[in-house]
């Protein structure tokens, strides 16, 4: 118990993972080093050597296993570690054969298997060691060894798992209609549009576009739906007191309903004429209001229905058939 306490306190300063200096957002990798445990990343079938082994024998062990260091055991107890530095020192001193006991590092720095991986990262960084023996916190017995290579490998493994999960997620979303058992299935997405908020205009269409992509809809269909929705959204922002956009997605078609509460369009036939616009100059100077919006919407959709009552509001209904992807 004493060891345990000592151990946790000694790690408190190691909590800080070397972060991006600019304090950038936590990346996926940074999340993972907090989530994963040392025990998840370490390798378990490690090579160890008995404290009674000779240095010459150890040299053979390291060479045949292509490792640069190993924990030294006395029975099942970890008593030291030999690193490549210890070896070089021994060789520099003449390389006279002796037992490991005389040359090993006795004050072994260890990690517990249940510590977050970030502890291993910062300890490796701080101390400049290549490896740490990993102990089980309860039994204090050696259960593995962790190296920088192990950490990289485990992170890559996790990232790949995440990648696959993302793929599966997409797959699921894109086959939603095949997965749902019903005679009729319709997904409804509702968004509200603020009036006169020019800088945020387009956010609804951006969200709608992402949603359709997520559902795995054909890119050509997504593009047409996004453009039609965006033109309609701009109209609501520019001309009305606000409104809403409701998108319904069915296996055979997408319908976008754009409703506002006024002022309404006086001459609907004229509104569809290319170049016809009642836009004030400020709108024209912003790159809109050239009388092309409704034409664009019509061009993008398979069916366009516009109903409007002056003083009451406008309802624009746009449909795009799913089987027109190659249109």
């Amino acid at each position: 118990m004493r060891d345990k306490k000592k151990d946790t306190s000694s790690f408190s300063s190691a909590e800080k993972i070397p972060r991006n200096k600019k304090g950038a957002a936590i990346t996926k990798v940074q999340e993972l080093v907090y989530e994963l445990k040392v025990g998840d990343a370490m390798h378990k079938n490690m090579i160890t050597a008995s404290v009674d082994t000779s240095m010459r024998q150890l040299r053979e062990i390291l060479r045949s296993h292509r490792i640069s260091g190993t924990p030294i055991m006395d029975g099942d107890k970890l008593v030291g570690i030999v690193s490549i530095e210890d070896f070089i020192k021994w060789l520099a001193e003449g390389g006279k054969d002796c037992s490991i006991r005389e040359k090993m590092t006795k004050n072994v720095k260890t990690l517990y298997a249940d510590e977050p991986l970030v502890h291993a990262v910062s300890k490796l960084e701080q101390m400049g060691f290549g490896r740490f023996p990993v102990l089980d916190r309860q039994s204090n017995k050696l259960v593995g060894v962790i190296t920088k290579g192990d950490i990289i490998e485990s992170l890559l493994r996790e990232l790949e798992v995440d990648y696959h999960e993302e793929e599966i997620h997409r797959y699921r979303a894109s086959h939603i209609f095949e997965d749902i058992i019903a005679d009729k299935a319709t997904l409804t997405f509702q968004y509200s549009v603020k009036a006169k908020d020019f800088s945020r205009a387009g956010e609804v269409s951006s969200a709608l576009r992402k949603t359709l992509n997520r559902l795995g809809i054909h890119p050509n269909i997504v593009r047409r739906a996004a453009i039609a929705s965006y033109e309609a959204e701009m109209n609501v922002v520019i001309y009305t007191d606000g409104g809403e956009i409701v998108m319904t997605v069915r296996p055979d078609k997408i319908q976008i309903d754009v409703k506002d509460s006024g002022p309404g369009i006086a001459d609907i036939k004229k509104a569809f004429e290319p170049g016809y616009s009642t836009a004030p100059d400020w709108v024209r100077e912003l790159g809109f209001g050239a009388g092309m919006g409704l034409c664009n919407i019509k061009k993008c959709s398979d069916e366009t229905v516009l109903n409007s009552t002056v003083g009451k509001g406008t309802h624009l209904k746009v449909s795009i058939n799913m089987n027109t992807a190659e249109r």
């Binding site: 020019f198 205009a201 576009r209 593009r223 996004a226 965006y230 912003l286 790159g287």
Partner: peptide, 15 residues
Amino acid sequence: TGLTNSQVVRTAEMA
């Protein structure tokens, strides 16, 4: 384009 408002980027995103 000679326009620099945020709708240029939104339009670019849609198109």
